[in-house]
Structure formats: C-alpha cells, structure tokens
Design a protein around this nucleic acid. Structure first.
Lengths: 312, 312
DNA sequence: CCACGGAGTGTAGTTTACTTTCGTCGCCCG
DNA sequence: CGGGCGACGAAAGTAAACTACACTCCGTGG
C-alpha cells in the first residue's frame, strides 16, 4: 500500500463551511459578502478563479484574498479545495427524508447518506467519559440484563449476543413481563443495559427505574433529554433526529448498533486475554457450522436459471 | 500499484479514483506513471501545481495535462478538485482494525470510520437491479420467511419486524429446526429472505437450498461468491471485508441493516398508500406505550446522584 | 535498407490565474 | 479639523496553467 497521510490534512475539511459561518461575524463588510456567496454557492465557488469570484461578488481580488487569510488559509486554491471537500462530505446539510415518489436509486442514496451522516454526527458527539464508565461497569458486573422493546429489541438481543460471547454474564428476556420481573431481581453490582430510540417507551423506562431502585447501574443508549435518559446512571447519548413518524427508526438503529460495537469492543480489550480467549472458544465451537472455504464450490450445486443479481 | 477503493458513492465526484484506476490500462506509459502517483498520493496531488506534479513524477507538464484530458476532464484544477473530493469522506483508505492496545478514543474513531467506510463501499457497489427485483418479489409475495442464524439472526428478526409492519405476510422462526421445517413448506410465489455475513453458514445455506427446491424465490443478503450467494435467486451483495476472526461481525452488520432499510423503505413506497396506511395503524396501536412528551419531565423522578454521563 | 507516418513525449512561449505592493478613501478620535 | 487607522482597490509582479510546435522512436511499405 502507499503512504497514508494524515487523514485530515489541515483541519477537519468537513465542517469548514460551518467554521466559515461561525467566523462570518468577525469579517469586514466586503469580506462578509464574499463569505455569504461562498456559503450560498459553494458548488460554484470551487470552479471559479479568484478574479471571477471577486467580480461576481462585486469586490476586488485582494479582498477575496484577505477573506481567505482571515479564515486562516494561506492561498486561494486552498479555499477551493476545502470548500470542495465540504460539499461532498456526507450529505452536507440536507438530511433528506425519503419522499413518496423517490425512485429506487434516490432511496438508496438517501438512506445510505443519512446513515453516514448520523454516524458522523454521533461520532462527534459521543461522550467518551460516559462510554468509559459504561465499559467499566460492564467489565465488573455480576450480571447484565439487556432491555429493549419494539424496534429496540433487536439491539437488546444483539447486545446480549455480543457480551455473552465475551464471557460476561449477560441475559435477555423475550417478553416485557419477563424483562420487568428480571429488572426487579437485579441488585448492586448488576447492570441494566437499556436501548430505546425515543427514550419514551413506557415499558423500557419503567424497567430502567425498577432496576435503579434495586441499586443496579442503569446504562442507557438513547436520546438525551428523554425519560429514559433521566433514569439512567450512565447515558450513552445518541441524538439522531429522524422521521419516526411514518417509517421505523432506521438511521438511529445504525448509530445504536455502532455504539454497541464500541461498547463490546472496548470491553473485549478491557478484559484482555481472558476476553479474547473466550471469543476464540466461542468461535471454535461454531467452526463445524460453517462450510469450509475449499468445499465451497462443490457444495454449491448450481441450479439452472439461478445466480441472478449481478446482472442488469 | 495500490488499490484505491471508492470512498463515496454517487456518480460524478466520488468514484473518481476508481474511474482513474479503471482507465489506467488505456493510458500511455508516461501518463500511467502520473496515474499511479495520483492513486498512491492523492493527498499530495491536491496541493501540487501541474509543474510540481510533472517534476515529481518525472514527466513533462503537457504529459500531465494530456493525462488529465484522457480522463475526460478539461483542466488541471478540475483534477485536483475531484481528487480532493474523493479522498474526503471521513475514512481515508485504512480500514484500520482495532488493536489490542488502542485506547477508547481510538476504538471509537476506528469503529465509526470503518462503519462509514463500509457504508460508502456498499452504497457504491449495491446492485440496483437486484434490489429492484427483490422489492418486486417481496411486494407480491404470498408469504415471506426470514432466515438467519447466529449473529445474522438479529437481522432476520429485524427484517420480520419491518416487513410485518408494512402488512406484508412475514414470519420468522426462532430456532434452526423450525426454520428448516418452515423452508420446506414454502412454494412458488413465496420468498425466503436469508441473511449471512460469511455466506457460509451451513444451516442458512441448507435452508436457502431447501426453499429454492420448493420453487420459492430465494433473496440473500450476503457476500458474493459464497455458497449462500450461489443458492440465491436474487443476490443483494454486501462485500464488506472485515476481521471476523476474533471479533463478531460488526461493520458488515451495519451494512446489512442499511440494505434492509432500503428494502423495507422501497417496499413501503412500492406498496403506496396501503403500505403507509398499515404503518400508521401499527404506529397508532403503539401510541399508548409511549410517554407523551408533555409528561416526560414529571414522570421522570430524578434520583440524587443520577444523571451522570454528560459530565467529564 | 531507407523514407515515411504516427504515436508519444518534451521545449518554449503565451495566456490565465494568483499574489503583493502601495496608494486612496473614509472614519474615528484626538 | 488634521493625524492615524482600518478597509478597500488599482496596478504591477510572479506563478501556474495551457498551447503550439518540434523532436524521437518505432513500425511499415517501398
């Protein structure tokens, strides 16, 4: 492979336009007009020469250059570069919702872009201290119960799978009644791991409160400022605004999944060799459920007319 | 020469480096050297003048310019712009694996970046025709069975949830035996929706084949070139290489989830008003399980010592 | 075996783009 | 009401990008 340079050469290229907007107030009037034009038409700016930009905005070339310098850049091309990178980076501002008359390609693009956007947002806003605290508690927990209802139940199930694989005593109960009963049987040293997109699902919140009453630590992955968040000892905030009105929570699902990945991975490393050893054991125990690579071809009797999918 | 993956989907700006790699073969020797340098050091190229690039590569300036034109571009700055946009998207190339001695911040960054990277890759490589065909079949299916074992089981569960919400007759069975029995009872007009990261899980593959024997349509979300992929009528290929050796499938999970989102969303729109109506009905039926926003504050009795997580 | 032609490349010169210097204007403060 | 300061632009200088043209190498046909 090649030299992989600093992922972000100077500053974060993505939020460059944000930075520009923030700095707008401190610019001189003429410079501000340049800033406004750049913010309004970044796509045009990247193909403009300094002279063209100056003419379009109605200022002189040196003013444009001063504007560039005011932003902490050395040269004008640098600006074009950063603006260019800003407008490409994952769905700039328009976190577009899917419309009823979108075609398939548009749906695909919108959903993938939204997911990427949410991941970037959550990444940036993730509370490391809370995450560290959560890993801490999970690592030493006597018992971990996973809670989640509705769409969040898959997250609870996934959490149970991931943590169990690490040799951490983690359980999940299939229905709400069982979960509620289980919550009441927790105690100090135990952890209740709760998932909810809205943070306002009555059952989950009640379980969290019940668990807290017993002295267990409540870790919640949910939206901040919600009842569930308030009930939590440790809040892993995922603030992904989305259209929950009609469609099922989608993008926030993805964000929750990645947060869970982080949790499980950090925990695995925290547990060190013992955790890795467990993973290996579990993996080995599954080996005979897999088709070995070398047999793969023979064991796949190709049926006529099958195998579509790559074609047009 | 180093492979350069497509950092971003869409058509124009993003897959530029890919396009460049593809066109490399048709270039003259000197131009090819330029191409290789651009592919290997895109981050440097975006800050180089044509003269500097020519000198570094060891060719003349016009050669660089001819290289630019061979790519279908008009001017050299256009190249810098496109290269710059190509290398943005959060994750450069290094799909970095988590190392045992990474600290929490590094783990967070690596996992989020990997997820974003995978989403971009899968977005770019997603087979729309296959997706359209899948939506088609699901829309008219008499019955849909979801299959998935191990880590993929949560996806199957999620699929069942999402499709069921649309009013599409979708079922899932909890254990392998039941799933296998169910597969045998499928028939023409039915759909088997299979999930597997590796595509080599024996149980899932057997179910897919059994389902295919009955004349049902097999839709598989998995890695291409695997036994499960071969057994599928419609393959939704998700080729996310990752470290399955020790850690559970993580990034591919996220990709599968988004593919499922696309499937469900496209299906909802395809079903039109009836699908949306179903969603609303289901949503309304859940209304009393939520804590209404206005009550949120009062219903959250704040306990002393609680509410950590946002702090340092 | 040599003349011819075309592909591929480089040299030199022109045009365009960017940057700096410096001077003017207007405004605030003394 | 004039000296000083900040904002701005004109013009000149410098660097970058582009174009025209010439050379070389190699294969082909006479």
């Amino acid at each position: 492979m090649s030299s992989v340079p600093s992922p972000r050469p100077h500053d974060a290229p993505d939020r460059f336009l944000e930075r520009l907007a923030a700095r707008r107030a401190h610019l001189s009037p003429s410079e501000r007009r340049v800033a406004d034009f750049v913010l309004d038409h970044p796509d045009q700016v990247i193909r403009m020469s300094i002279a063209k930009l100056a003419e379009t905005v109605g200022v002189s070339e040196p003013t444009v250059l001063r504007f560039v310098r005011a932003l902490g850049l050395q040269r004008y091309p640098e600006l074009k570069l950063l603006v260019g990178q800003s407008i490409v980076s994952g769905t700039p501002y328009v976190h577009a919702d899917v419309e009823p008359d979108d075609d398939l390609g548009t749906i695909i693009t919108k959903l993938f872009d939204s997911s990427v956007y949410v991941l970037n947002t959550v990444h940036a806003s993730l509370d490391r201290a809370a995450m560290a605290a959560a890993v801490d508690r999970l690592a030493t927990a006597r018992r971990i119960d996973c809670f989640g209802t509705g769409a969040a139940s898959v997250l609870a199930i996934e959490a149970q799978q991931k943590l169990m694989r690490l040799g951490v005593p983690t359980v999940i109960y299939a229905d709400t009644h069982l979960q509620r009963m289980a919550a009441a049987t927790l105690g100090p040293g135990d952890v209740a791991l709760c998932f909810s997109h809205t943070g306002a699902v009555l059952d989950t919140v009640k379980m969290a409160r019940k668990a807290a009453e017993t002295g267990a630590t409540v870790v919640a992955v949910t939206r901040p400022g919600t009842p569930l968040a308030a009930a939590a000892d440790i809040l892993l905030a995922v603030d992904a605004r989305e259209n929950t009105e009609v469609y099922a929570p989608m993008t926030s699902r993805v964000a929750h999944a990645v947060v869970l990945d982080v949790l499980a991975t950090a925990l695995a490393l925290r547990l060190g060799e013992s955790g890795l050893a467990r993973l290996r054991e579990v993996k080995d125990s599954l080996a005979d459920l897999r088709i070995p690579p070398e047999e793969a071809d023979e064991t796949a009797p190709r049926r006529p007319g099958r195998g579509r999918g790559t074609g047009a």
